[in-house]
Design a protein around this nucleic acid. Structure first.
Lengths: 195, 195
DNA sequence: GCATCAACCGGACTGAGGTCCGGATCTGCT
DNA sequence: AGCAGATCCGGACCTCAGTCCGGTTGATGC
């Protein structure tokens, strides 16, 4: 039940490498704030950071990972909360409550950081990420406790399916659903599956 | 409750246009059969069809739409079944049964035509497609009948979330789940939401 | 201080999806 | 048949993510 830590600099990073990582993150944040995520290309970021494209991609792998690094504090705080935080998100509360708290927090995350979250989950690799696996394992663990008769893994995938950033965004932005309605829906879903 | 018809040639297509459409579909099918979808680029298809790239994109818009056109007979048969087919997929069966039948059929579709289905649903446009809207409306309609106290639209999105091609593929291919297990899971989900 | 070498750097290059537009072609009307 | 003009064609062109590799730099041991 240990969610994977994000971006562990392999052993120790060379000084120039660390410097460049910071320059890149900094430029990326600035450009995104200025123009919006969809109008910032990887070349833009590299250029603005005064760094070659190769460097950018060696540090961050691909666009999705860069996006993940950009919401890293947010995201790893979230993971931290799941494992060691206060109830109802952290341990201590009954499983069903924790699932619901997870869902609500995730919905907020998707809404507050919509662009980055969508980017992180975009592309065919997302489901193979260990971020996804971590969430999945966490939920499956809770589901197994709350409702042993269910297929815990499948239920976890179901719950995560509703919490996908693109879906949440679509419902809120394109279909004009209120965030509260999504949360109500998620609560109803969790309740009816876990009891 | 009318699912949108696919690819309605605007009014009437010019003869050469229709000819090219056929050449393209034909080449695409051949190349995909030979090398597999992920090793066939749009340029390949255009070249093989003896047609300019512009023509290809004017006819089909983008890669996802071409993929959709390629499984068109399959897909529009499916839609036909939903509206006018035999129970339990078509009208006549109780709503919950129809939802389950829909899910099972969709899972089969995702497994049998995995590449094309994944391609059709890839990218950020999928949820705004009227294919998606059609499915969504269909399910919401059934849900509203079976469980009026639920948020029918949200439940529809939930169900479709589990039936996304990338998820189904991931579970079957990467996680080694049996198709039957997915169907059981979906049945359990539908049952516990609609009763 | 210096040699050694792995790690790192930059930016040219590739490949793919998608756009654009001048010129060719078809169709309906007279 | 002949004309007008809407439709369509082709392929050059653009952007962008991601790769590759020859040259450089920083860490480490002496």
């Amino acid at each position: 039940m240990d969610l994977p830590v994000v971006q562990p600099p392999a052993v120790t990073e060379r000084a120039d490498a660390a410097r460049n990582r910071q320059k890149i993150l900094c430029s990326a944040r600035r450009l995104i704030a200025e123009r919006g995520l969809e109008h910032v290309s990887m070349d833009d970021i590299a250029a603005d950071a005064g760094v070659g494209k190769g460097t950018l991609f060696r540090r961050f792998g691909d666009r999705a990972s860069l996006a993940h690094a950009l919401l890293d504090s947010t995201e790893s705080e979230f993971q931290e909360q799941l494992i060691r935080g206060e109830p109802p998100l952290g341990p201590g509360a009954p499983p069903c409550q924790r699932v619901i708290a997870f869902g609500e927090a995730m919905i907020d995350l998707c809404v507050d950081r919509r662009d980055l979250m969508a980017e992180v989950q975009a592309g065919p690799r997302w489901l193979r990420t260990n971020i996804y696996s971590g969430y999945r394992a966490h939920l499956a663990y809770l589901v197994a406790q709350a409702a042993p008769e269910q297929d815990a893994e499948f239920v976890a995938d179901t719950l995560l399916g509703v919490l996908r950033a693109d879906l949440v965004n679509h419902l809120v932005t394109d279909r004009g659903m209120e965030v509260e309605r999504l949360k109500d829906g998620f609560r109803a879903l969790a309740t009816s599956l876990l009891s």
